[in-house]
């Protein structure tokens, strides 16, 4: 299984990469939505992308919308991982095509549970 971690924070990318690696994912990282799209355009086909919302260059919501507009990327499961916790944000992300929504700070268990619910891991 491959995961794409999209976050402008190197610390958050490191935390998520460590967690996903422990769950047997190969992890690719991107610092913003544009970098993530470039990775997909270059041929990366992650099973899941964990996407921050507030980023420079291209925010996570725009990335999710662009990802959903391209049929080549329709199999990528999208999980928003963000500090944005308003109900309206959650609705917006899910309407744009996110499958799951995790609010920071999170525990490892929360991420693992979501991945299990999405059928990406079995525990």
């Amino acid at each position: 299984m491959q995961a794409l971690v999209v976050d402008d924070s190197r610390v958050m990318r490191t935390i998520l990469t460590r967690l996903l690696t422990d769950l047997n994912f190969d992890v690719v990282q991107a610092g913003d939505g544009a970098e993530a799209l470039a990775a997909l355009d270059a041929g990366a086909r992650p099973d899941v992308a964990l996407v921050d919302w507030n980023m420079p260059v291209m925010d996570g919501l725009t990335f999710i919308k662009k990802c959903r507009q391209n049929p080549d990327y329709r199999d990528v499961v999208l999980m928003m991982v963000t500090t944005e916790s308003e109900h309206s944000n959650i609705v917006q992300a899910l309407a744009a095509g996110a499958h799951e929504y995790v609010i920071k700070p999170f525990t490892d268990e929360v991420i693992a549970e979501k991945l299990e619910m999405l059928g990406l891991i079995a525990r």
Partner: peptide, 24 residues
Amino acid sequence: DVIAELGNIAGGNVKSLLCHNGQL
């Protein structure tokens, strides 16, 4: 990088607590 991410997480949660319709 570490202090920036701590600020980011704190900021998002402060927004939820005190300013529901705002931009961080």
